[in-house]
Design a binder for these strands. Structure first.
Length: 263
DNA sequence: ATGGTAGACCTTCTA
């Protein structure tokens, strides 16, 4: 059972390279972030043709998350509780009805830049709302994988030059502490169990030749409940996709990250 | 010297 997460930075602008990757890797389940479209403009047919069931929580221009699954999806939840006026589409959760069912998410945690603004306080509030949901889910004792773009650099080693990120919302002490708290609650970062030897970055900025210089950061994560962590068999960062482009579509600034389970 | 890239889409915002 292969479960992937990928911030695609516009599902429609990126469709050709996304489909190429899906045909190559054939994930059983894949969470997508930054769709940048409303539900009606999601390219359902293209993914249905590859055999996927689809749940979408879209938004015009910004954000937007989806879950694609070769198995039926049930118990679909859009958005996090705790802030009624929040209209940003950043959270989607569903149960994958496989022979051994499990629960997955598509998380697009707020970026939070610049510091000292409402954007940063929104990020902190959003983390607390996610923490509340994560705590509820642990009680269920299910196989749960909290997958997505967390916009959190967990440790100094997870960015090419920590000094550059000191004043960035992705690398603040309280944000990093929150990521540790998810782990202290009982979730396991798949990266920590099967750390790749060659590369740990999941994002390379479009600007300043970051990809060419390998100046990346690790911000896309799979946090597993104990019941899921027990079954983990593989962890892969699909680094090469950062360099893949076609005539019609450029690469996303994020690459897919996959976990596999013996289910 | 305050640059650079990408996407949605109306003019600037977000990342």
């Amino acid at each position: 059972m292969k479960i992937s997460t990928w911030n695609v930075n516009s599902v429609n602008a990126r469709l050709e390279v996304i489909l190429n990757w899906f045909r190559e890797e054939r994930p059983d389940v894949c969470s997508l972030q930054e769709l940048k479209c409303i539900d009606e403009k999601f390219p359902y047919e293209a993914f249905e043709a590859l055999g996927y069931n689809i749940a979408v929580h879209g938004q015009k221009t910004y954000n937007g998350v989806a879950i694609l699954s070769k198995y039926p999806l049930s118990d679909i939840t859009k958005g996090l509780k705790g802030e009624d006026e929040d209209e940003q589409a950043r959270y989607l959760e569903a149960v994958v009805d496989a022979p051994h069912p499990f629960r997955v998410t598509s998380i697009y945690l707020p970026n939070g830049n610049p510091l000292g603004t409402e954007k940063y306080s929104y990020k902190l509030r959003w983390i607390e709302r996610l923490m509340a949901r994560a705590t509820q889910l642990l009680v269920l004792e299910e196989r749960t994988i909290l997958s997505g773009d967390y916009n959190i650099i967990p440790e100094p080693v997870d960015c090419y030059n920590p000094a550059v990120w000191m004043d960035d919302a992705l690398f603040q002490p309280d944000v990093r502490a929150a990521f540790r708290k998810f782990k202290n609650l009982g979730y396991t970062d798949a990266f920590d169990v099967l750390t790749p030897a060659d590369n740990r970055y999941t994002f390379w900025d479009y600007q300043a030749g970051a990809w060419q210089k390998n100046e990346g950061i690790r911000i896309d994560h799979h946090l597993m409940s104990p019941q899921a962590a027990d079954k983990l068999s593989a962890f892969t960062i699909h680094k090469a996709t950062r360099g893949f482009a076609t005539e019609n579509a450029k690469a996303s600034d994020h690459v897919p990250v996959s976990v596999e389970f013996n289910l």
